[in-house]
Each structure stands twice: as C-alpha cells, then as structure tokens.
C-alpha cells in the first residue's frame, strides 16, 4: 500500500473528512443565504418598524401587497426590463462568441474588450453611463446632434417608446396602456446589456470549444455550408450552454437593483416611477425609515416564487429541446 492509496482510502473517502472540508463554504451559505431566506419568510408574517418586530399580522402584508398598484406597476416594469435584456443579450453574446471562436488576428484583444465591462465596478459603469445619457452634457446627445438627429432626455423621459415612435411617425393617438417601457428604462436596459454581454460570451465560448471538431469535419465532408453547420451542428450541441445562459440571465435580470439605484432619479425609480423595478420597490418599502421590513419580506417572497416558477416553466418548455 503506497501512501497515496492510504490517503485516498482513509482520508478522502472518509465522510467525516469530506464534511469538514465543506464546513467553511457551508457556514457562509447558511449564515448569508439560508438564515436570511428563512428569516425573510418568517418576517413576512410580522409587522416590523425601524428595527423592531411589533407583532404577528398573519397574511396582512400579502393582502396589502396585492392591493398596492405600485407593486403591480413595478412588477410590470421588471417584466419589460427582463424582456428587453434577455433576448438581446443572448443574441448579441452568441453572435460575438461565434465570431470570437474563429481564428482571427488580435483575438485576445477582442475578448478582453468584450469582457472589460464585466470586471468593471457596476457603480462606476452606472455613473459613467449616467453622464453619457445626460440631456445637455452627455456624449450620446452630442453624437446625435452631430449626426443631425434630435437630442433626447433619455433617463428623464417618462414616455413609453412605442408612444414616442407613434408620435414620431405623426400618429396623433396611441392607446395609453400600450405605450411600452419608458425611454429611461430602455437606457438602463442598454447599459445592462452592454455590461452583461462579456460574461455570456465567455460561457458561450466555453460551450463552443466543447463541441468536438469531428462533427464539423464530418459536416463539411458531407458538403454542408457554414449556415447549415451552425444550425445542424453548433446550435443543437450548444443548447445546454444556451439554456444555462438563458436561465442565469433571466434570474439576474429579475433581481436588477444597482443600475436603477444609481442611474435613475432623483427620485430613484423615476421619471414618474417608470424605472421602479421590483427589487427597488422592495428596498424602498423595507429600508426607508417609514418602511416595514415585514412588508419588504413579503415582496421578496413573491419575487422568489415568481423567479422559481419561471425557472421551472423554462425547464419544462426549453429543456426538452436541449441535447445533452
């Protein structure tokens, strides 16, 4: 028996040793994830003001929640945000990943450029983009004006983009309920896509490089063109990666907070509450001094249920088309 075998049998196979290795990560997960989740669930049945639990209120917070129009409008805003970020981010990052998977010059440079926003502080990114979008001093409006376009107020524009397009086309009337996300929200979405794309590209690149070259060679020998190769070989074999990217982008998009907090307002969530996403609504209700942590916990729980059920639905609908 060599010492290595000894180690493998006695130490690494020992469940107690394994448990010991799991302890540090376990403590972190339990203290910073599990306990807060359970506490939030419990707190949502209590009245909590300014750091003190006042009393058990049963389902009252949930009843209140479903009577608050701001809850539903912030939910709607979040859905707009997710619907804006996820498909575009997925499409652009897949496109970029396929291009970056070719043998081109200065490949490393391109990869770095795309990944740079991901490693940049989100706070710094938000502040810089806030200036880019500034109505009078911003770079974007400067470019627009140089190109002969009209300056826009971007983060201060409460009108929905569909309504703006309709009025731009000269239509005098547009149904009020269908005005779409505000231009301010679109501005935030643009930043989110720009910032998140690099991460998705890296995941897609890893997925692309996992596809064995034999398949491509076989397809070529059979006379497939590059479009055929993509749809018949790359796309199906990449599907587990695409599925993962879809899921993770959807979940993180639902949880958007920082860009909203830093880029919009004052007051945050403006103009006219059109960028007030659900997590900011939760924050405002719980952490502002007039607020109630019990109510905020109820919002958090509803958000959790929404994300969980969406993930399950995505699994059902999409996973059947995934080739593992």
């Amino acid at each position: 028996m060599t010492w290595l075998e000894n180690l493998r049998r006695k130490k690494f196979m020992d469940p107690l040793t394994a448990a010991l290795y799991l302890v540090p990560a376990g403590i972190v997960v339990i203290v910073f994830r599990m306990i807060p989740i359970v506490s939030a669930f419990i707190l949502s049945f209590f009245d909590v003001k300014m750091g003190r639990i006042r009393g058990f209120v049963g389902l009252a917070q949930y009843v209140r929640l479903f009577q608050d129009p701001t809850f539903f409008s912030s939910l709607g805003t979040t859905v707009y945000y997710v619907a804006g970020v996820v498909p575009v981010s997925l499409f652009l990052s897949l496109l970029a990943a396929v291009l970056l998977n070719q043998k081109i010059r200065a490949l490393g440079l391109y990869r770095t450029v795309f990944f740079l926003p991901v490693v940049t502080s989100l706070v710094a990114v938000s502040m810089v983009w806030k200036w880019i979008f500034h109505p009078r001093l911003g770079l974007l409006n400067y470019i627009f004006e140089v190109l002969g376009g009209n300056a826009m107020v971007w983060l201060e524009e409460p009108r929905g983009i569909f309504e703006m397009v309709a009025s731009g086309l000269g239509w005098g009337w547009w149904p009020a309920g269908l005005s779409g996300p505000s231009l301010a929200l679109i501005a935030v979405i643009i930043v989110a896509i720009w910032r998140g794309i690099g991460y998705n590209i890296v995941i897609f690149l890893a997925g692309l490089q996992n596809i064995p070259n034999q398949y491509y060679e076989a397809a070529r020998i059979d006379g497939a063109n590059s479009r055929g190769v993509f749809w018949k070989v790359t796309w199906p074999l990449l599907s587990p990666t695409t599925f993962y990217v879809l899921l993770s982008t959807t979940i993180t998009s639902f949880q958007v907070f920082t860009q909203i907090y830093l880029m919009t307002g004052p007051p945050v969530g403006g103009p006219m509450g059109t960028t007030k996403v659900i997590v900011y609504y939760l924050f405002e209700k719980g952490f502002d001094a007039g607020g109630n942590m019990g109510y905020a916990s109820a919002v958090a729980l509803i958000l959790f249920v929404i994300i969980l059920s969406l993930t399950l639905v995505q699994r059902r609908l999409v996973e059947s088309r995934v080739y593992y």
Binding site: G270, G273, A289
Partner: peptide
C-alpha cells in the same frame, strides 16, 4: 406620521412630477 412619509412620495412622483 410614517404614513405621510410614504404618502409624500406619491405627491412628489405622481402629483408634482406628472
């Protein structure tokens, strides 16, 4: 009141801003 603290936001966002 704490209720007005929350209500004031509506006056600002829904009323004055609109």
């Amino acid at each position: 009141s704490a209720a007005w603290y929350a209500g004031r936001k509506y006056l600002e966002e829904t009323g004055v801003e609109a």
